[in-house]
Nucleic acid binder design. Structure first.
Length: 430
RNA sequence: UCCCCGGUAGCUCAAUUGGUAGAGUAGCGGACUGUUAAUCCGUGGGUUGGAGGUUCGAGCCCUCCCCGGGGAGCCA
Protein backbone atom coordinates (compact mmCIF):
# COMPACT_ATOMS: atom_id res chain seq x y z
CA UNK A 1 0.00 0.00 0.00
CA UNK A 2 1.34 3.41 -0.95
CA UNK A 3 1.37 5.61 2.14
CA UNK A 4 2.46 9.10 3.11
CA UNK A 5 5.18 9.34 5.72
CA UNK A 6 2.80 11.38 7.82
CA UNK A 7 0.36 8.44 8.02
CA UNK A 8 2.88 5.71 8.84
CA UNK A 9 2.38 5.77 12.64
CA UNK A 10 -1.19 4.55 12.05
CA UNK A 11 0.06 1.53 10.11
CA UNK A 12 2.56 -0.13 12.44
CA UNK A 13 2.81 -3.83 11.60
CA UNK A 14 1.66 -3.36 8.00
CA UNK A 15 3.70 -3.17 4.85
CA UNK A 16 4.01 0.24 3.23
CA UNK A 17 5.47 1.76 0.09
CA UNK A 18 6.83 5.30 0.31
CA UNK A 19 7.62 7.29 -2.82
CA UNK A 20 10.00 10.17 -2.40
CA UNK A 21 13.58 11.32 -2.38
CA UNK A 22 16.63 10.25 -0.43
CA UNK A 23 17.20 12.86 2.27
CA UNK A 24 20.30 11.19 3.67
CA UNK A 25 22.03 7.84 3.59
CA UNK A 26 24.10 6.37 6.38
CA UNK A 27 25.77 3.11 5.62
CA UNK A 28 27.52 1.01 8.20
CA UNK A 29 28.92 -1.88 6.26
CA UNK A 30 26.28 -4.54 6.49
CA UNK A 31 23.39 -2.23 7.38
CA UNK A 32 22.09 0.82 5.53
CA UNK A 33 19.90 3.62 6.90
CA UNK A 34 17.99 5.45 4.17
CA UNK A 35 16.16 8.59 5.27
CA UNK A 36 13.42 9.19 2.74
CA UNK A 37 11.30 12.33 2.48
CA UNK A 38 8.05 12.46 0.56
CA UNK A 39 6.72 15.98 1.19
CA UNK A 40 4.78 15.01 4.29
CA UNK A 41 7.72 14.02 6.43
CA UNK A 42 10.91 12.01 6.67
CA UNK A 43 11.08 8.31 7.51
CA UNK A 44 14.11 6.13 8.11
CA UNK A 45 14.31 2.93 6.12
CA UNK A 46 16.57 0.17 7.42
CA UNK A 47 18.02 -2.65 5.39
CA UNK A 48 20.48 -5.21 6.73
CA UNK A 49 22.62 -7.60 4.73
CA UNK A 50 20.65 -10.83 4.45
CA UNK A 51 17.27 -9.06 4.72
CA UNK A 52 17.17 -8.77 0.95
CA UNK A 53 18.93 -10.54 -1.94
CA UNK A 54 22.58 -9.47 -2.19
CA UNK A 55 22.20 -7.46 -5.44
CA UNK A 56 19.37 -5.45 -3.88
CA UNK A 57 21.48 -4.79 -0.80
CA UNK A 58 24.43 -3.72 -2.93
CA UNK A 59 22.20 -1.37 -4.91
CA UNK A 60 21.62 0.68 -1.75
CA UNK A 61 25.32 1.46 -1.38
CA UNK A 62 26.21 5.00 -2.26
CA UNK A 63 22.83 6.24 -3.47
CA UNK A 64 23.38 9.99 -3.74
CA UNK A 65 21.38 12.48 -1.71
CA UNK A 66 18.10 13.56 -3.40
CA UNK A 67 17.93 10.53 -5.65
CA UNK A 68 14.30 9.67 -6.31
CA UNK A 69 13.45 6.40 -4.61
CA UNK A 70 10.47 4.12 -3.98
CA UNK A 71 10.93 1.99 -0.88
CA UNK A 72 8.79 -0.82 0.49
CA UNK A 73 8.92 -2.51 3.85
CA UNK A 74 7.29 -3.29 7.16
CA UNK A 75 6.34 -0.36 9.39
CA UNK A 76 7.80 -0.82 12.86
CA UNK A 77 7.83 1.35 15.91
CA UNK A 78 11.40 2.02 17.06
CA UNK A 79 12.54 4.66 19.50
CA UNK A 80 15.93 4.85 17.77
CA UNK A 81 14.36 6.11 14.54
CA UNK A 82 13.75 9.83 14.03
CA UNK A 83 9.97 10.16 14.07
CA UNK A 84 9.40 7.02 16.10
CA UNK A 85 8.67 4.61 13.24
CA UNK A 86 10.90 3.13 10.59
CA UNK A 87 10.56 0.91 7.57
CA UNK A 88 12.30 -2.46 7.50
CA UNK A 89 12.89 -2.53 3.79
CA UNK A 90 12.47 -5.47 1.50
CA UNK A 91 12.65 -3.46 -1.73
CA UNK A 92 14.42 -0.29 -2.82
CA UNK A 93 13.86 1.08 -6.31
CA UNK A 94 16.05 3.95 -7.41
CA UNK A 95 14.00 5.91 -9.94
CA UNK A 96 16.95 8.16 -10.72
CA UNK A 97 20.43 8.32 -9.24
CA UNK A 98 20.89 12.00 -8.53
CA UNK A 99 23.93 13.86 -9.74
CA UNK A 100 25.99 15.18 -6.80
CA UNK A 101 23.50 17.41 -4.98
CA UNK A 102 24.63 21.02 -4.53
CA UNK A 103 22.88 21.67 -1.24
CA UNK A 104 24.65 19.68 1.41
CA UNK A 105 23.46 19.02 4.95
CA UNK A 106 25.67 21.87 6.12
CA UNK A 107 25.43 25.63 6.21
CA UNK A 108 25.33 27.70 3.05
CA UNK A 109 25.36 31.42 2.38
CA UNK A 110 22.21 33.31 1.28
CA UNK A 111 23.49 34.02 -2.23
CA UNK A 112 24.20 30.36 -2.90
CA UNK A 113 20.88 29.24 -1.47
CA UNK A 114 18.90 31.85 -3.42
CA UNK A 115 20.60 30.88 -6.66
CA UNK A 116 19.51 27.32 -5.91
CA UNK A 117 16.07 28.26 -4.65
CA UNK A 118 14.45 25.64 -6.90
CA UNK A 119 16.38 22.98 -4.97
CA UNK A 120 16.49 24.78 -1.63
CA UNK A 121 12.70 24.41 -1.48
CA UNK A 122 13.31 20.75 -0.63
CA UNK A 123 15.17 21.57 2.57
CA UNK A 124 13.50 21.40 5.96
CA UNK A 125 13.00 25.08 6.75
CA UNK A 126 11.68 26.10 3.33
CA UNK A 127 9.36 23.09 3.50
CA UNK A 128 8.04 24.20 6.89
CA UNK A 129 7.75 27.84 5.83
CA UNK A 130 5.73 27.02 2.72
CA UNK A 131 3.39 24.89 4.78
CA UNK A 132 2.84 27.73 7.25
CA UNK A 133 2.28 30.09 4.32
CA UNK A 134 -0.41 27.74 3.02
CA UNK A 135 -2.14 27.69 6.39
CA UNK A 136 -2.02 31.48 6.65
CA UNK A 137 -3.64 31.72 3.21
CA UNK A 138 -6.34 29.24 4.25
CA UNK A 139 -6.96 31.13 7.48
CA UNK A 140 -7.38 34.39 5.58
CA UNK A 141 -9.83 32.94 3.08
CA UNK A 142 -11.81 31.07 5.73
CA UNK A 143 -12.00 34.18 7.91
CA UNK A 144 -13.54 36.30 5.19
CA UNK A 145 -15.59 33.58 3.53
CA UNK A 146 -17.24 32.65 6.83
CA UNK A 147 -18.30 36.26 7.36
CA UNK A 148 -20.13 36.69 4.09
CA UNK A 149 -17.33 38.23 2.04
CA UNK A 150 -17.07 37.58 -1.68
CA UNK A 151 -13.63 37.16 -3.23
CA UNK A 152 -13.35 39.61 -6.12
CA UNK A 153 -9.90 39.89 -7.60
CA UNK A 154 -8.46 43.08 -9.03
CA UNK A 155 -6.50 43.35 -12.28
CA UNK A 156 -2.72 43.07 -12.34
CA UNK A 157 -2.32 45.39 -15.36
CA UNK A 158 -3.52 48.85 -14.51
CA UNK A 159 -3.63 52.05 -16.55
CA UNK A 160 -2.31 54.38 -13.86
CA UNK A 161 -1.10 54.68 -10.35
CA UNK A 162 -3.05 54.52 -7.15
CA UNK A 163 -0.68 56.98 -5.56
CA UNK A 164 1.84 58.30 -8.07
CA UNK A 165 3.96 56.43 -10.63
CA UNK A 166 7.40 56.39 -9.05
CA UNK A 167 6.97 53.00 -7.44
CA UNK A 168 5.32 51.23 -10.38
CA UNK A 169 6.71 48.72 -12.84
CA UNK A 170 6.00 49.84 -16.38
CA UNK A 171 5.18 47.40 -19.19
CA UNK A 172 4.29 47.86 -22.83
CA UNK A 173 0.64 47.17 -23.55
CA UNK A 174 -0.05 46.69 -27.27
CA UNK A 175 -1.19 49.93 -28.89
CA UNK A 176 -2.49 51.40 -25.64
CA UNK A 177 0.91 52.66 -24.63
CA UNK A 178 2.21 51.81 -21.18
CA UNK A 179 0.50 49.81 -18.50
CA UNK A 180 1.64 49.36 -14.92
CA UNK A 181 1.74 46.37 -12.62
CA UNK A 182 -0.68 46.98 -9.78
CA UNK A 183 0.58 48.02 -6.39
CA UNK A 184 -2.84 47.59 -4.77
CA UNK A 185 -6.28 46.33 -5.76
CA UNK A 186 -8.00 48.76 -3.47
CA UNK A 187 -9.59 51.16 -5.94
CA UNK A 188 -11.07 48.25 -7.87
CA UNK A 189 -12.50 46.45 -4.89
CA UNK A 190 -14.07 49.68 -3.70
CA UNK A 191 -16.10 49.37 -6.89
CA UNK A 192 -16.84 45.72 -6.13
CA UNK A 193 -17.90 46.55 -2.57
CA UNK A 194 -20.62 48.82 -4.02
CA UNK A 195 -21.95 45.71 -5.77
CA UNK A 196 -21.43 42.93 -3.24
CA UNK A 197 -21.16 44.74 0.09
CA UNK A 198 -18.28 42.83 1.64
CA UNK A 199 -15.45 41.82 -0.68
CA UNK A 200 -11.76 41.00 -0.66
CA UNK A 201 -9.09 40.64 -3.27
CA UNK A 202 -6.05 38.47 -2.74
CA UNK A 203 -3.21 38.41 -5.17
CA UNK A 204 0.24 39.60 -6.09
CA UNK A 205 1.15 43.29 -6.04
CA UNK A 206 4.32 44.99 -7.25
CA UNK A 207 6.43 47.80 -5.87
CA UNK A 208 9.33 49.22 -7.84
CA UNK A 209 10.88 50.74 -4.73
CA UNK A 210 14.61 50.24 -4.52
CA UNK A 211 14.26 48.77 -1.08
CA UNK A 212 17.00 46.53 0.21
CA UNK A 213 15.93 45.27 3.59
CA UNK A 214 14.74 42.10 5.23
CA UNK A 215 11.14 43.37 5.16
CA UNK A 216 10.76 44.13 1.45
CA UNK A 217 10.04 42.28 -1.77
CA UNK A 218 9.28 43.82 -5.17
CA UNK A 219 6.52 41.24 -5.71
CA UNK A 220 4.40 40.14 -2.79
CA UNK A 221 0.88 38.99 -1.98
CA UNK A 222 -1.65 41.22 -0.31
CA UNK A 223 -5.18 40.52 0.87
CA UNK A 224 -7.43 43.56 0.80
CA UNK A 225 -10.92 43.49 2.27
CA UNK A 226 -13.32 46.32 1.50
CA UNK A 227 -16.64 46.79 3.29
CA UNK A 228 -19.56 49.04 2.34
CA UNK A 229 -21.00 51.11 5.19
CA UNK A 230 -17.95 50.38 7.35
CA UNK A 231 -16.38 53.10 9.46
CA UNK A 232 -12.91 53.26 10.96
CA UNK A 233 -13.81 51.34 14.15
CA UNK A 234 -15.38 48.56 12.04
CA UNK A 235 -12.22 48.28 10.01
CA UNK A 236 -10.06 48.13 13.14
CA UNK A 237 -12.21 45.33 14.57
CA UNK A 238 -11.96 43.45 11.29
CA UNK A 239 -8.16 43.76 11.17
CA UNK A 240 -7.87 42.59 14.76
CA UNK A 241 -10.13 39.61 14.14
CA UNK A 242 -8.18 38.56 11.05
CA UNK A 243 -4.82 38.57 12.78
CA UNK A 244 -6.15 36.62 15.75
CA UNK A 245 -7.66 34.05 13.38
CA UNK A 246 -4.40 33.63 11.48
CA UNK A 247 -2.32 33.11 14.62
CA UNK A 248 -4.85 30.62 15.97
CA UNK A 249 -4.79 28.65 12.73
CA UNK A 250 -1.00 28.46 12.68
CA UNK A 251 -0.91 27.28 16.29
CA UNK A 252 -3.56 24.68 15.56
CA UNK A 253 -2.12 23.25 12.36
CA UNK A 254 1.59 24.00 12.27
CA UNK A 255 3.14 22.76 15.51
CA UNK A 256 5.63 20.51 13.72
CA UNK A 257 6.50 23.23 11.22
CA UNK A 258 7.17 25.74 14.00
CA UNK A 259 9.47 23.22 15.63
CA UNK A 260 11.42 22.75 12.38
CA UNK A 261 11.68 26.53 12.12
CA UNK A 262 12.80 26.78 15.77
CA UNK A 263 9.97 29.29 16.25
CA UNK A 264 8.86 29.61 19.87
CA UNK A 265 5.04 29.39 19.76
CA UNK A 266 4.66 31.36 23.00
CA UNK A 267 4.57 34.82 21.37
CA UNK A 268 1.92 33.59 18.92
CA UNK A 269 -0.22 32.36 21.81
CA UNK A 270 -0.26 35.93 23.14
CA UNK A 271 -1.90 37.28 19.98
CA UNK A 272 -5.38 37.78 21.43
CA UNK A 273 -7.97 40.53 21.54
CA UNK A 274 -7.94 43.31 22.43
CA UNK A 275 -4.97 44.89 20.67
CA UNK A 276 -3.71 48.14 22.17
CA UNK A 277 -5.13 51.08 20.20
CA UNK A 278 -3.35 54.42 20.13
CA UNK A 279 -4.12 57.50 18.13
CA UNK A 280 -1.18 58.77 16.15
CA UNK A 281 -0.88 61.65 18.63
CA UNK A 282 -0.76 59.22 21.56
CA UNK A 283 1.78 57.08 19.73
CA UNK A 284 4.03 60.10 19.14
CA UNK A 285 3.82 60.92 22.83
CA UNK A 286 4.80 57.36 23.76
CA UNK A 287 7.71 57.26 21.32
CA UNK A 288 9.05 60.59 22.59
CA UNK A 289 8.64 59.47 26.20
CA UNK A 290 10.87 56.51 25.35
CA UNK A 291 13.60 58.82 24.17
CA UNK A 292 13.12 58.61 20.41
CA UNK A 293 12.47 61.85 18.57
CA UNK A 294 9.28 62.10 16.53
CA UNK A 295 7.29 65.15 15.43
CA UNK A 296 3.51 65.34 15.57
CA UNK A 297 3.18 65.06 11.80
CA UNK A 298 5.86 62.40 11.29
CA UNK A 299 5.40 58.90 10.00
CA UNK A 300 7.11 56.08 11.87
CA UNK A 301 10.67 55.30 10.87
CA UNK A 302 12.41 52.14 11.98
CA UNK A 303 13.55 53.48 15.40
CA UNK A 304 10.13 55.01 16.10
CA UNK A 305 8.39 51.76 15.26
CA UNK A 306 10.71 49.89 17.58
CA UNK A 307 10.04 52.30 20.43
CA UNK A 308 6.30 52.08 19.83
CA UNK A 309 6.02 48.29 20.23
CA UNK A 310 8.69 47.97 22.91
CA UNK A 311 7.36 45.70 25.65
CA UNK A 312 4.19 44.85 23.72
CA UNK A 313 3.16 41.25 23.27
CA UNK A 314 0.23 42.12 21.01
CA UNK A 315 0.16 44.06 17.77
CA UNK A 316 -0.30 47.79 18.20
CA UNK A 317 -2.98 49.64 16.23
CA UNK A 318 -2.21 53.26 15.40
CA UNK A 319 -5.21 55.22 14.14
CA UNK A 320 -6.28 58.80 13.36
CA UNK A 321 -3.24 59.95 11.38
CA UNK A 322 -2.11 63.40 10.30
CA UNK A 323 -3.88 63.75 6.97
CA UNK A 324 -0.82 65.29 5.31
CA UNK A 325 1.07 61.98 5.36
CA UNK A 326 -1.78 59.77 4.17
CA UNK A 327 -3.06 58.98 0.67
CA UNK A 328 -5.61 61.10 -1.18
CA UNK A 329 -8.42 58.56 -0.88
CA UNK A 330 -8.31 58.37 2.92
CA UNK A 331 -11.27 60.04 4.61
CA UNK A 332 -10.66 63.13 6.70
CA UNK A 333 -12.43 63.44 10.03
CA UNK A 334 -15.36 65.79 9.21
CA UNK A 335 -14.88 67.39 12.64
CA UNK A 336 -11.12 67.83 12.17
CA UNK A 337 -9.79 67.76 8.61
CA UNK A 338 -6.20 67.58 9.89
CA UNK A 339 -6.94 64.00 10.91
CA UNK A 340 -7.19 61.09 8.45
CA UNK A 341 -9.28 58.10 9.47
CA UNK A 342 -6.55 55.57 8.82
CA UNK A 343 -5.13 52.68 10.82
CA UNK A 344 -1.80 50.83 10.72
CA UNK A 345 -1.13 47.63 12.61
CA UNK A 346 2.42 47.12 13.82
CA UNK A 347 3.42 43.58 14.76
CA UNK A 348 5.48 42.94 17.91
CA UNK A 349 8.94 41.31 17.95
CA UNK A 350 10.23 43.72 15.30
CA UNK A 351 8.22 42.34 12.39
CA UNK A 352 6.87 45.78 11.57
CA UNK A 353 3.83 47.01 9.76
CA UNK A 354 1.59 44.18 8.59
CA UNK A 355 -1.61 46.15 7.92
CA UNK A 356 -2.42 49.59 6.55
CA UNK A 357 -5.92 50.83 5.83
CA UNK A 358 -8.85 52.87 7.02
CA UNK A 359 -12.02 54.59 5.97
CA UNK A 360 -12.23 55.97 2.41
CA UNK A 361 -13.28 59.45 1.37
CA UNK A 362 -16.87 59.00 0.20
CA UNK A 363 -17.63 62.64 -0.60
CA UNK A 364 -17.15 63.55 -4.27
CA UNK A 365 -16.26 67.19 -3.69
CA UNK A 366 -13.64 66.41 -1.06
CA UNK A 367 -12.12 63.67 -3.15
CA UNK A 368 -11.84 66.01 -6.14
CA UNK A 369 -10.21 68.57 -3.90
CA UNK A 370 -7.61 66.03 -2.80
CA UNK A 371 -6.87 64.87 -6.34
CA UNK A 372 -6.27 68.44 -7.41
CA UNK A 373 -4.17 69.27 -4.36
CA UNK A 374 -1.88 66.31 -5.07
CA UNK A 375 -1.84 67.12 -8.80
CA UNK A 376 -3.02 63.64 -9.74
CA UNK A 377 -4.35 63.08 -13.30
CA UNK A 378 -8.08 63.47 -12.79
CA UNK A 379 -9.02 61.69 -16.03
CA UNK A 380 -7.45 58.48 -14.78
CA UNK A 381 -9.69 58.56 -11.73
CA UNK A 382 -12.99 59.39 -13.45
CA UNK A 383 -14.28 55.86 -13.05
CA UNK A 384 -13.30 55.93 -9.39
CA UNK A 385 -15.08 59.24 -8.92
CA UNK A 386 -18.22 57.65 -10.40
CA UNK A 387 -18.40 55.51 -7.26
CA UNK A 388 -19.06 58.76 -5.36
CA UNK A 389 -21.54 60.01 -7.95
CA UNK A 390 -23.79 56.98 -7.93
CA UNK A 391 -24.91 56.00 -4.47
CA UNK A 392 -21.80 56.76 -2.41
CA UNK A 393 -21.66 55.31 1.10
CA UNK A 394 -19.18 55.32 3.94
CA UNK A 395 -16.80 52.41 3.43
CA UNK A 396 -13.33 51.21 4.25
CA UNK A 397 -10.85 48.40 4.22
CA UNK A 398 -7.20 47.53 4.61
CA UNK A 399 -4.34 45.62 3.07
CA UNK A 400 -2.48 42.85 4.88
CA UNK A 401 0.90 41.78 3.58
CA UNK A 402 0.95 37.99 3.34
CA UNK A 403 4.71 37.56 3.45
CA UNK A 404 5.21 39.86 6.42
CA UNK A 405 2.52 37.93 8.24
CA UNK A 406 4.15 34.61 7.38
CA UNK A 407 7.50 36.04 8.42
CA UNK A 408 6.00 37.00 11.77
CA UNK A 409 4.31 33.63 12.31
CA UNK A 410 7.47 31.71 11.38
CA UNK A 411 9.85 34.08 13.15
CA UNK A 412 11.83 34.23 9.91
CA UNK A 413 14.82 36.55 9.77
CA UNK A 414 14.34 37.60 6.14
CA UNK A 415 11.11 37.98 4.17
CA UNK A 416 12.65 36.38 1.07
CA UNK A 417 12.28 32.99 2.74
CA UNK A 418 8.50 33.34 3.07
CA UNK A 419 7.79 33.27 -0.66
CA UNK A 420 8.64 30.35 -2.97
CA UNK A 421 10.60 32.40 -5.50
CA UNK A 422 11.44 35.84 -4.08
CA UNK A 423 11.67 38.87 -6.32
CA UNK A 424 14.03 41.48 -4.95
CA UNK A 425 16.01 44.49 -6.09
CA UNK A 426 18.94 42.47 -7.41
CA UNK A 427 17.38 39.06 -7.83
CA UNK A 428 14.92 37.73 -10.37
CA UNK A 429 16.32 34.18 -10.93
CA UNK A 430 15.27 31.46 -10.66
C1' U B 1 19.47 56.62 -4.30
C1' C B 2 22.72 56.88 0.19
C1' C B 3 25.82 54.51 4.26
C1' C B 4 28.50 50.08 6.13
C1' C B 5 30.55 45.00 5.34
C1' G B 6 32.22 41.09 2.27
C1' G B 7 34.14 38.12 -2.36
C1' U B 8 40.07 32.41 -1.18
C1' A B 9 38.60 24.64 -3.65
C1' G B 10 31.58 22.57 -5.68
C1' C B 11 30.06 24.46 -0.49
C1' U B 12 31.38 26.74 4.66
C1' C B 13 35.62 29.11 6.19
C1' A B 14 41.17 29.86 7.81
C1' A B 15 45.90 31.96 6.14
C1' U B 16 50.18 36.05 12.16
C1' U B 17 53.92 41.90 10.32
C1' G B 18 53.36 41.86 2.81
C1' G B 19 57.26 36.06 2.49
C1' U B 20 55.87 28.26 -0.41
C1' A B 21 47.42 29.11 -0.25
C1' G B 22 45.16 25.25 4.15
C1' A B 23 41.05 22.71 6.97
C1' G B 24 36.18 20.76 7.26
C1' U B 25 32.53 19.16 4.09
C1' A B 26 30.89 17.42 -0.71
C1' G B 27 33.25 14.06 -4.80
C1' C B 28 36.16 9.54 -5.77
C1' G B 29 38.49 4.58 -3.60
C1' G B 30 38.37 1.41 0.80
C1' A B 31 36.66 -0.49 6.10
C1' C B 32 32.55 -1.14 9.42
C1' U B 33 25.26 -4.84 11.39
C1' G B 34 21.73 0.62 14.89
C1' U B 35 23.44 5.12 12.19
C1' U B 36 21.23 10.26 14.20
C1' A B 37 25.06 16.32 10.09
C1' A B 38 27.63 8.38 11.56
C1' U B 39 32.82 7.28 12.11
C1' C B 40 37.81 5.80 10.38
C1' C B 41 41.84 5.41 6.36
C1' G B 42 43.39 7.07 1.49
C1' U B 43 42.84 10.59 -2.67
C1' G B 44 41.91 14.44 -6.69
C1' G B 45 40.49 19.51 -6.39
C1' G B 46 42.75 26.92 -6.85
C1' U B 47 43.62 32.60 -12.83
C1' U B 48 42.45 34.09 -4.17
C1' G B 49 35.67 38.30 -8.32
C1' G B 50 38.03 41.44 -12.68
C1' A B 51 41.57 45.23 -14.52
C1' G B 52 45.54 48.23 -13.31
C1' G B 53 49.23 50.07 -9.67
C1' U B 54 53.03 50.03 -5.35
C1' U B 55 56.90 46.31 -3.99
C1' C B 56 62.65 42.13 -4.57
C1' G B 57 57.91 39.76 -3.38
C1' A B 58 50.55 40.97 -2.97
C1' G B 59 45.03 36.62 -0.91
C1' C B 60 46.77 40.78 2.32
C1' C B 61 48.39 47.71 0.59
C1' C B 62 46.27 51.64 -3.30
C1' U B 63 42.65 53.03 -7.58
C1' C B 64 38.57 51.77 -10.64
C1' C B 65 34.90 48.20 -11.99
C1' C B 66 31.65 43.76 -11.18
C1' C B 67 28.85 40.70 -7.80
C1' G B 68 26.65 39.73 -3.06
C1' G B 69 25.12 40.83 2.15
C1' G B 70 23.23 44.30 6.02
C1' G B 71 20.91 48.95 7.00
C1' A B 72 18.36 53.91 5.79
C1' G B 73 14.42 56.09 3.09
C1' C B 74 9.63 54.21 1.01
C1' C B 75 6.10 50.93 2.30
C1' A B 76 2.69 45.54 3.23
Amino acid sequence: MILSVRDLPQHVGEEATVRGWLYNLRSKGKIHFLQVRDGTGIVQGVVGKGDVPDPAFAACEGIPQESSVVVTGAVRADARAPGGVELHLRDVQVIQRSEPYPIALQSHGPDFLLRHRHLWLRSRKPWATLRVRHQVIRAIRDFFDSQGFTNVDAPIFTPAACEGTTTLFEVKYFDEGNAYLTQSGQLYIEAAAMSLGKVYCFGPVFRAERSKTRKHLTEFWMVEPEVAYATLPDIMDLAEGLIVAIAARVLENCREELKVLERDPAPLEKIRKPFPRLTHAEAVKRVNARGVAMAADDDFGAPQEEALVQGEERPVMVYRWPSAIKAFYMKRDPADPAVALGVDVIAPEGFGEVIGGGQREDDLAKLLERIEAEKLPKEAFEWYLDLRRYGTVPHGGFGLGLERTVQWMCGTEHIRETVPFPRMLYRICP
